[in-house]
Design a protein around this nucleic acid. Structure first.
Length: 596
DNA sequence: GCCGTTTTCGGCCCGACTGTTTTCAGTCG
């Protein structure tokens, strides 16, 4: 089946289709256990669509590309094409007649599963959220079998927190909150080891809840759980058992789970609690096929039930004949197969970074003087060999963009400070604006005087951004594309862009692409980093600091690089400045070759 | 409904906690 009537480019189908498949999964969930595997399939398709890089219509152009997507088989593939052609899916329309729409929404609320919702619908004819709220208020639920007072309380809370429950927190905020709580847990009497697990350990860009895994003698568990749920930050206790407890924090409403295990289970528990869910499922399924059973207590021989590994993660991966898989890679993106073949990359580390490639001073919209910045970085990051000052160009009026004459003055100021420091520590850079037509807002003769030129899009998001960026890559006076996706996490989606074309052009012209480490940018995104380096693109990691405290964001940038499978040689600012100069010469050469 | 270096048919991760029950279903991660 081909595509006859593709909607015009730039329209977003992924989110719409993901929402439909999510609802279809909910429908089948409601319709009973006989559909449970179908539910898994639609859940899988929902996940795939949510994480897709390009619009689904790009893949739907050819049947093979569509079916290469994990979780998209024949039937769901046909439904995608049907949706792209007609805007509807017949099966879904029919399902909607069987399951009232208001019930699907109810199933998205914490504590509401299909059985609960079905009972409410069949016994007291609830069809949506409003009717449920009224039923609770009027006491209609009292005496209903299976609906005791605690269950009703939980339902009320779920309804109230519905919106907040969906909010995720920026990685940076979660790292700070998580570290604070971890320190408190480590101070509990009896704790032997404890660390953060979950998506926080994997350094995902946003975090849903915080997981802590800890080991202690079993006799101390009860005391430790009591201490944990009594933490002053705790607003409410969600669950409390022998081995685990969950609390919700004040203000942030973020959930923190603590899991206690024996020392001989610590590694398997850490593995389990770190996830991702998809990585765990794949690993467990694979182990099962080898005659093992993997759970949070260890790896066991399926026949004898004897524990074969479990104290450390290293031990488990070793038993499986795999390389150790760093948490940042555990996303089911091929890491298990590569670990088996011993082909995992040796990932870049924070300590490999030798300079910061983008920052702003009071000359534009930064908070500090150039000299203050330089002295601070020299002190706090003693292994840095250079920083690149990149104040804004004229178009960024709000950000106090500099005029050409200002930059000439700034050059002198930088020379003066470098002389005082006794080394060429501060490099002369600029974050130049890419205008609507892909031209830049500073003259070429000035741009050529900079040590490093980052070009960024700050406005005109609806223009043809692919063409704008391709044009910029072809310029000899531009070395890097800044925050290429233009997104602000939780606020603004990135603009549409043909990433393949950009990566190919960047690789061919020797133009670097930035990972901007601002907590709400993390742009280039991790999955795109992986594709970029596979195409041969050089990556830079910069904090884009506007204040001294922001230089610490470098660890976020490195986390994104690691999640994108970056080795040290994929990241330009793991090199000396001499090598950066060489990279720039390489670009001049590449452009000359292209002209011939 | 998807998927395959054990399978194109027969599987599909696995256990803890809660609430309301007298032995377990539902929900979650």
């Amino acid at each position: 089946m081909g595509l006859s009537n593709v909607k015009k480019a730039g329209e977003r189908h992924n989110a719409d289709l993901a929402a439909i498949f999510h609802q279809m999964a909910s429908c089948y969930r409601y319709l009973g256990a006989k559909h449970r595997f179908r539910v898994m399939a639609y859940d899988g398709a929902t996940r795939t669509l949510s994480n897709l890089k390009n619009d689904i219509s790009v893949y739907a152009k050819d049947e093979d590309a569509l079916h290469e997507l994990h979780g998209i088989g024949e039937s769901i593939g046909e439904k995608i094409v049907e949706y792209l052609n007609t805007g509807k899916i017949k099966t879904f329309e029919q399902l909607k007649k069987k399951v009232p729409q208001g019930l699907l929404e109810l199933m998205d609320i914490a504590g509401f599963g299909p059985a609960t919702v079905k009972a409410l619908h069949q016994k007291i004819h609830i069809n949506n959220r409003d009717e449920l709220i009224r039923a609770i208020e009027t006491g209609k639920l009292k005496g209903l079998r299976g609906f005791g007072p605690k269950k009703i309380d939980n339902m009320k809370r779920g309804l109230k927190l519905f919106k907040e429950a969906h909010a995720r927190m920026l990685l940076w905020d979660a790292m700070n909150i998580g570290e604070d709580i971890l320190q408190e847990v480590l101070a509990f009497p009896g704790i032997k080891k404890a660390e953060l697990a979950g998506s926080l350990r994997r350094k995902k860009e946003t975090i849903g809840d915080i997981d802590i895994i800890a080991t202690a003698d079993k006799k101390d568990w009860k005391k430790i759980v009591s201490k944990f749920i009594a933490l002053p930050q705790s607003e409410r206790i969600l669950a409390k058992g022998e081995t685990r407890a969950s609390i919700v924090l004040k203000k942030t409403n973020i959930q923190v789970d603590l899991r206690l295990v024996h020392e001989y289970e610590y590694g398997s528990a850490l593995l389990y609690f770190t996830g991702s869910k998809e990585h765990n499922i794949k690993l467990r399924t694979w182990a099962k096929g080898k005659g093992w059973k993997l759970n949070e207590y260890g790896v066991f021989d399926a026949e004898s039930d004897k524990q074969l590994a479990g104290a450390t993660e290293e031990e488990i991966y070793r038993l499986f004949g795999m390389q150790f898989i760093p948490p940042e890679l555990r996303e089911e993106r091929g890491e298990i197969e590569n670990a088996r073949k011993h082909l995992l990359p040796r990932l870049v580390n924070l300590k490999d970074i030798r300079g910061d490639m983008q920052m702003h001073s009071v000359w534009s919209d930064g908070a500090d003087e150039i000299e203050t910045i330089a002295r601070y970085v020299c002190k706090e990051f003693p292994h840095y060999e250079y920083i690149v000052l990149t104040d804004h160009s004229p178009s960024e009026r709000i950000a106090g963009g500099l005029q050409p004459a200002d930059f000439i003055k700034q050059f002198k100021e930088i020379d003066r400070i470098n002389k005082k420091l006794g080394k060429d520590f501060i490099r002369k850079g600029v974050e130049v604006d890419i205008l609507a037509d892909g031209s830049l807002d500073l003259p070429e003769d000035l741009l050529q005087q900079f040590d490093w030129v980052v070009a960024s899009i700050h406005s005109g998001f609806t223009k043809d951004n692919t063409q704008r960026l391709l044009k910029v890559c072809e310029r000899r006076d531009v070395h890097c594309i800044g925050h290429p996706g233009g997104r602000l996490i939780g606020k603004r989606e990135g603009y549409t862009l043909d990433w393949n074309k950009l990566f190919e052009k960047a690789a061919a012209t020797g133009t670097a692409i930035e990972i901007n480490a601002q907590p709400n940018r993390l742009d280039l995104r991790d999955d795109l980093v992986k594709e970029a380096i596979e195409k041969g693109v050089m990556i830079t990691i910069s904090t884009d600091s506007h204040a001294l405290s922001q230089f610490d964001f470098m660890q976020l940038g490195v986390a994104v690089a690691r999640r994108g499978w970056c080795k040290i040689e994929n990241v330009l600012n793991t090199c000396s400045w001499k090598a950066v100069e060489q990279f720039k010469r390489h670009k001049q050469h590449a452009l000359k070759q292209a002209v011939k």
